[in-house]
Simulated scan of single mutants.
Amino acid sequence: MAAWSVTPDGLAIAIRLTPRGGRDAVDGVETLADGRQVLKARVRAAPSEGEANAALVALLAEMLAVSRSQVSLTAGASARLKRIVVRGDGEALAARLQKRICEI
């Protein structure tokens, strides 16, 4: 299973987030023990009071050149594994994400 998929309303992304990771960055794609693929991301923010989630939303919005309001956390608010939905043209967002991952 790919780390992201195009949906009718945009792009769904599975993410493994590391809070207090030293810098805000996406580190590529990782395959979990169960075979699922996730996008590896890290943020400087602590995991308290939603700070790490907010930093992740900001990081993805900047990376995909969309507004923060287009990026929403749909699952995993208090877990390392999260699901993010980015509203917009799913095909264009997927292409942009793929290009950015290849640059890593």
Rank of each mutant, 00 (worst) to 15 (best):
V85S: 08
R23N: 04
R23S: 13
A65G: 09
A95V: 07
E103L: 13
R100Q: 15
R96C: 12
A61L: 09
R23E: 14
E30W: 14
D34C: 03
E51A: 10
L64G: 01
R44Q: 12
V66D: 02
D24Q: 03
C102G: 10
S5V: 10
T7A: 09
R68A: 15
L73Y: 06
R68I: 05
G28A: 03
G21P: 11
I15W: 07
A3M: 09
V85D: 15
P19F: 00
C102T: 12
V29I: 13
C102F: 15
R100V: 01
W4I: 03
P8N: 01
R16E: 14
R36E: 11
W4N: 04
A55N: 08
L64H: 00
A25E: 13
A25M: 04
S72R: 13
E30T: 14
L60C: 00
A41K: 03
K82L: 02
R80L: 09
A46S: 14
S72L: 11
A54I: 05
A33Y: 01
Q37G: 02
Q37F: 01
V66I: 05
C102L: 15
S78C: 05
V85N: 11
L64N: 00
L32T: 03
G76P: 15
R100W: 03
L81T: 08
L59G: 05
I101A: 07
A33G: 04
G21R: 02
M63H: 13
V29K: 00
L59T: 01
R80T: 09
A94F: 08
V26Q: 07
G76T: 05
R42L: 04
A12S: 14
A45T: 06
A92G: 12
D27V: 01
Q98G: 14
E30S: 10
A46P: 14
L32E: 11
I84Q: 06
